[in-house]
């Protein structure tokens, strides 16, 4: 599977150089072409050890960034800062080079959550759920416009238009995640922030939702930031990767470079821990990890 659109090797090398520049730009602290950026961000709850320390990440239009790490690494906190739901204790979050607030910011930075059950209001019809950003941000000219744009968003995520009249519980987990994505893209944002968007889904559904996210990012020129602990999903979806360990970015760059030749021992450990079919049922059919039986 190759939804990120990375084609032949030379194209990938070009990518690699490009996103090296983007990452360097982020680290150097110059805005560059970044649409959303965390610059030397720290975050701590009162009288507690810091959750994030000196984190700099950036994403540009049409690109995708993975925030990788394990529980307690600070991924979700970083995402909340990028969403403008909390303020960093130090450093800055920059949207289009400015403050992450106001209507423009809200319109252009939309989230998708992990749990497709708690992210949709069970008492609203899908049409109302998907059109909420349009109504809250007053982006509607007429009543009919809402219906049209909801239908368009539902079509974009591969759901039938009549889904708008139904309630969330009538849909499966994967379909519900598509509804959440439709809500996020209905106001045509510049950035999609996804927190473990597929980890609650079954494997076959997971593949399709990853493909959908990749395709949407590509076709709409949206930047996608995804928090994930699953490196297979990261490899399939994101061009750039930042690895977080205990609140610090220990390694970042193009995914191909970070996962292909990890420089930091923690990245390598993460990579070695991924359960893989290719290793488990390797060519010889014998598992290397298995100790000899007595």
């Amino acid at each position: 599977m190759n939804p990120a659109g990375a084609g032949p090797d030379d194209a990938e090398n070009a990518d690699r150089a490009e996103s090296h520049d983007a990452a360097n730009a982020a680290r150097a602290g110059s805005g560059g072409s970044a649409v959303l950026e965390a610059r030397d961000v720290g975050f701590a709850y009162r009288k507690a050890a810091p959750v994030l320390t000196g984190v700099s990440v950036a994403v540009s239009p049409g690109r995708s960034l993975a925030l990788v790490g394990e529980s307690g690494a600070g991924k979700t906190t970083l995402l909340r800062l990028l969403l403008g739901l909390a303020r960093p204790s130090s450093g800055r979050i920059l949207f289009d080079g400015g403050e992450p607030s106001g209507r423009e910011f809200r319109r252009n930075v939309q989230p998708v959550f992990q749990d497709p059950y708690s992210s949709l209001d069970p008492r609203q019809r899908v049409g109302r759920i998907v059109s909420e950003p349009l109504r809250s941000l007053r982006l509607l000219g007429s009543r009919d416009e809402a219906g049209d744009r909801v239908a368009e968003a539902l079509r974009a995520v591969g759901l039938p238009a009549d889904a708008a009249r139904r309630y969330p519980h009538e849909f499966s987990g994967g379909q519900r995640q598509r509804i959440a994505i439709a809500r996020a893209i209905v106001c045509e944002p510049k950035v999609l922030l996804a927190d473990e968007p597929v980890s609650a889904l079954d494997v076959s559904t997971r593949v399709r939702v990853v493909e959908l996210l990749a395709e949407l990012g590509e076709s709409r020129g949206m930047a996608v930031v995804m928090v994930s602990h699953d490196l297979t999903v990261v490899a399939a979806l994101c061009r750039d990767t930042a690895v977080l360990e205990r609140g610090r970015v220990v390694e970042q760059g193009p995914t191909l470079a970070v996962l292909g030749s990890p420089a930091h021992p923690y990245t390598r450990k993460l990579l070695d821990s991924v359960p893989r079919l290719s290793r488990a049922a390797g060519a010889g059919g014998e598992r290397a990890s298995r100790p000899e039986r007595p």
């Binding site: 969403l83 403008g84 739901l85 209507r103 809200r106 319109r107 930075v109 939309q110 989230p111 959550f113 992990q114 749990d115 708690s118 992210s119 949709l120 209001d121 609203q124 759920i129 909420e132 950003p133 809250s136 941000l137 959440a180 809500r183 996020a184 106001c187």
Partner: peptide, 21 residues
């Protein structure tokens, strides 16, 4: 619930969150 966060991030005001959700 996440749908409250989603609602907030699409710019819904708190009074509206109360009446809507």
């Amino acid at each position: 619930q996440d749908y409250i966060t989603a609602s907030r991030t699409s710019g819904t005001s708190w009074p509206r969150v109360v009446t809507e959700h």
